[in-house]
Amino acid sequence: MPGWFWGALLLSPAFLLVAGVIAAPIAYLVRLSFTDAHAYLPRFGSVGFDNYAALLRAPHFWDSVRTTVWYAGLTVGLQLVLGVLIALLLHQRFRGRGVVRLVALAPYMVPSIVVALVWRWLLDPTTGAYSWFIDKVWPGSEPPNLLSPNLIFWSLIAVSVWMFTPFIVISVLARLQTIDPSVVEAATVDGAGAWRRFWHIVLPELKPVLYTLILLRFMFMFTKFDVVYLFAGTGTEVRTLPVLTFQRIFGEARLGSGAAVAMILFVLLMIFTTVYLRTLYREREETA
């Protein structure tokens, strides 16, 4: 037998695995998105681009796109700002630093379902700690319902930032620990204040890791489903594209339309990633 045969044979299990676990489901999803498949009724007719056209015409689809972009943009932005600040604080030397670091990282270790339930209990307008606190500070006042449709999006942002900021903290802290302290010390001796040291020395050192974090966190938050669904449900205010996909498939039983939403989500993410990486690459080329 020729050598290529044995090579191909040995590669075939891995190929089959990738084909079966990744390629085939995506191919099936693409195929599904061009049909009017229904969860219960015997429908699997080809409808061409009708599902996509209907989505692009539907105002609530664009509402979902906007909600997703806002959700991902705001949570990633806040995670970055808070994550860098917390990492800078945890990088300082102080007593009990180990314990504080552990506590600061804890939210990331808690399962999503626990986070969602605990925060819902805390923010409950009638029996939660939040309403109790408001009542103690302003007796007799009616606290705004942070879980109501007009405020739930902002509560979701807060909970998501609380939960995922530790990921930034871990990553930035790790990078901070590799910066040569003598460079910072030299700048201090030369009279640079804290802000100038951060802006001109620390931040440039952090840039590579921050670029990677922006990309990863945006991808994660753009496709985030668990904490959105578990904490905030499926209402229009929090109906991001992943939630809309779930809603179409499991709520409305429209498999074809749900697959089309999933494909659009996939394409949007690909566009973002490509543009982001190209911009990054160009900037690096220019710097070099």
Partner: peptide
Amino acid sequence: LSPAWSSQTYAD
């Protein structure tokens, strides 16, 4: 109607 209604579960 209680203003909390929209965030109340059945058990609540």
